[in-house]
Structures are given as C-alpha cells and as structure tokens.
Design a binder for these strands. Structure first.
Lengths: 113, 113
DNA sequence: CTGGATCCTTTAAGATACTG
DNA sequence: CAGTATCTTAAAGGATCCAG
C-alpha cells in the first residue's frame, strides 16, 4: 500500500500545536526574525497580553519558539523561531498560498453566479 | 520586495475554514472518495451526529465538500470533495508530513535529554 | 517592559432523545 | 438513514488591574 490514510494522530497533533486564534498569527510575525514581547503585542492587532503570553508559552513548550531574556532595565525579552520552528516555514507558505488561491476562486465564482 | 509578510487575512481564512475539532478529520476521511453520512459517523471515532452535520454543513458552505442525496428508501446521502476541495490534498499531505517528522524529533529529543 | 492573577462572557463541544 | 432539537458542560477568549 503506497499511501495509507492520513494519520489522525498527526492531524490532531497539528491542530493542537497550531490551533487557537493567535498561534499562526504569532508564527507569521516571527517568520522573518526575532521580536520582543511589546513588538508582537503591537503588531498583532487585537491581542491582549494575556493571550499573547499564553500562546507564546504553548509554542515554547512545543519547541517551536525560543525565548531569550536580557537583563536590561527594564527587562527585555526576545522571541524567535527555533530550529524546529523554522521547519514550519514551507507549511506556512503553502497554507497561505492555498488560502490566497481559494479566496480568489470564491470571488470569481460569486462574480459568475 | 519579493515576499511580503504572510497575509493575516489568509491565515484567518484558513483557520476559519479548516478550524474546529473535526474538519480536518472529515476531510482526511473523504480524501480517497465519497462516503455516506453513516460511514463518516462510524469511521470518525467519537463524533456525534450533531457535530458531524454541523462541520459538514460548514465545509459545504465553504465549497469544499459536495452533498448529494438519493431518493432511496431510506434516503441516502453521499459526501465528497469538490473540485476546490481536491486542491486541499497537497496541503493535507504536507500538514501530515510536518506533524509526522516533528513528532519524531520530539521523541528523539526526549530520548537524549 | 514583561508578564501574573482575576473575573467575566462567549463559543465550542458533548449527551441524549427525537423526527421524516 | 440522515439528520434536529434541547440541554448542559468545558474551554477559549476578553477586560482589567496589578507586580517585579
């Protein structure tokens, strides 16, 4: 059998890891490099510090995001993708591409109908 | 600029379209062809008819899944991926591949530490 | 600046029984 | 068989204030 049914556990795992309202949002924000907490808070429209720290912690626990603190005054913290997190890049791109194309098709279809 | 920041609207759209506990589960079940309501209910472990019909309706509204009824007695209904739905296949595969590899890495890491 | 803690509202989901 | 309806619970998320 060349290709078994897609493993449900993998799907569940992915949903758990990347699910939630803000995780993909955060990841796309870290796509091109590290950001400080406040930068993320500013750039992710509508997120509260509580949700931001919660999602960051989960991503950190999953080994996708790295957290580095600096003993400045006041304290600074930088978040970035880990090696493992970087492997998400092609996936993020494909997700974006699919969504882009799909939305375009919907728009066309509405025009035709 | 070769590549702008990944569009947030696309990400949101994807999460809305594919989010929820069962949608990816359903899609992987329709991956290789059409299925009847009851078949889906049986093969998706733990789903209730309420959730199944709800997710199916949303996928149908999104233009990803096609619903065809047959006037048999009792009535039969077949669900399948639409043309648009089929474009999800490579994405589903890449999601699965990423999850598979990533989980393997985690397992290794735990072994080392 | 980077969070933690608390309270509150909303939404998602589960259980179960029922209908054409 | 293919769904509906209703009720209840669990989880996600938002708002706000506070502390190192």
């Amino acid at each position: 059998m060349e290709k078994c049914l897609i493993n449900i556990e993998d799907i569940q795992f992915l949903l758990q890891t990347l699910g939630g309202k803000w995780k993909l949002h955060i990841l796309t924000n870290l796509y091109f490099g590290k950001k400080r907490f406040k930068e993320l808070e500013r750039e992710i429209d509508g997120i509260s510090p509580k949700m931001l720290i919660k999602e960051l912690k989960e991503l950190e626990a999953a080994g996708i995001v790295h957290r580095q603190t600096f003993n400045t005054v006041p304290i600074t913290v930088e978040y970035s993708l880990t090696e493992n997190g970087l492997t998400l890049k092609p996936l993020l791109e494909q997700m974006k591409n699919w969504a882009e194309i799909f939305r375009k098709k919907i728009a066309e279809h509405k025009g035709n109908s």
